[in-house]
Computed example of a mutant assay.
Amino acid sequence: MSNKINKNLYAVFGNPIYHSKSPDIHNFFYKLYNLNCNYIAINASKNFFLNEISLFFKNGGKGANITLPFKEKIFPICDIITERAKIAGAINTLKLYNKKFILGDNTDGIGFLSDLLQNNLIKRKNNILIIGAGGASRGIIYPLLKFGCNIFITNRTFEKAKFLMKKFKKFGNIKCIKIKNLKNNKFHLIINATSAEIKNDLPLIPSNIIKKKTICYDMFYGNEDTNFMKFCKKYKSEKVYNGIGMLINQAAHSFFIWNKIFPDIKKTLFFLKNKIK
């Protein structure tokens, strides 16, 4: 990216990035509000991504999203970091501030909570089980605790779950629980925050924790039901969701940071669902 950018350009950086729906979403936002902007996907080098992202801004880029595997590694190029990004330990949104400073933020958590609220899937004091203790979990725990929910984390490697519990316990009621002990508990909402779907795998959880009224949410999204979604439907959950709503909402919050406009979620969801059929 050696040439100066002549228009308002935004991008998502990741590796791999071919599957990203972010360009579809953001370019729909620009069309919806008649903004002279363009949003592209950039497959960044795993070794030189910091230089590539810095060059993007030096050449006139206005803002960027960061996805796997760079979210936890982007801090060094940021001049300003928001509190929620610090707490999450990950950054997914960058903005050029005053034409010289790079602001680092995280909209994953607020995007996830927004989707839950829009679909009436969450209430204060709900017991929520999060399966997985990686980067996806990090981004959503703080807003759920701040909202007033009770969080339980389980993970194949229990030490990772304990680490997250210790990291976030000052923000609310959070516990870690071994997979073998899950069957003795009742959860209002079960969230799959693992990468099992990428490996065509399924999180190891007992089926008896899934009831008719248990809300099941897979943060992964695709054209068809994920393995986790199929598993939950098999055991009679009537409310099963994928991560497409979270994807749109986190994008909307990024868009608001850049443009001070909060986009229409329903129109975008309708557009994207029709596009990925």
Score class of each variant (00 low, 15 high):
residue 171 F to R: 06
residue 171 F to C: 11
residue 171 F to N: 11
residue 172 G to H: 14
residue 172 G to S: 10
residue 172 G to A: 07
residue 172 G to K: 04
residue 173 N to A: 07
residue 173 N to E: 04
residue 173 N to M: 01
residue 175 K to Y: 15
residue 175 K to W: 03
residue 175 K to C: 07
residue 176 C to Y: 14
residue 176 C to M: 03
residue 177 I to P: 07
residue 178 K to T: 06
residue 178 K to W: 06
residue 179 I to W: 05
residue 180 K to W: 03
residue 181 N to F: 09
residue 182 L to M: 12
residue 183 K to P: 05
residue 184 N to Q: 15
residue 184 N to E: 12
residue 184 N to R: 04
residue 184 N to T: 13
residue 185 N to D: 04
residue 185 N to T: 01
residue 186 K to T: 04
residue 187 F to R: 01
residue 187 F to A: 07
residue 188 H to K: 08
residue 188 H to N: 13
residue 188 H to M: 05
residue 188 H to E: 15
residue 189 L to P: 06
residue 189 L to R: 13
residue 189 L to A: 12
residue 190 I to S: 10
residue 190 I to P: 13
residue 190 I to N: 12
residue 191 I to K: 10
residue 193 A to W: 07
residue 194 T to M: 13
residue 194 T to V: 06
residue 194 T to P: 05
residue 195 S to F: 00
residue 195 S to H: 01
residue 196 A to K: 03
residue 196 A to I: 01
residue 197 E to K: 08
residue 197 E to P: 02
residue 197 E to N: 14
residue 197 E to M: 02
residue 198 I to F: 00
residue 199 K to N: 09
residue 199 K to V: 03
residue 200 N to R: 06
residue 202 L to R: 01
residue 202 L to S: 12
residue 202 L to A: 02
residue 203 P to E: 00
residue 204 L to V: 03
residue 204 L to D: 04
residue 204 L to W: 03
residue 204 L to C: 05
residue 205 I to C: 09
residue 205 I to P: 02
residue 205 I to A: 14
residue 206 P to R: 15
residue 208 N to V: 13
residue 208 N to K: 14
residue 208 N to G: 10
residue 208 N to M: 05
residue 209 I to H: 08
residue 209 I to W: 03
residue 209 I to N: 09
residue 209 I to C: 04
residue 210 I to V: 13
residue 210 I to S: 08
residue 211 K to L: 11
residue 212 K to I: 08
residue 213 K to F: 03
residue 213 K to T: 13
residue 213 K to M: 02
residue 213 K to Q: 14
residue 213 K to L: 09
residue 214 T to Y: 01
residue 214 T to A: 06
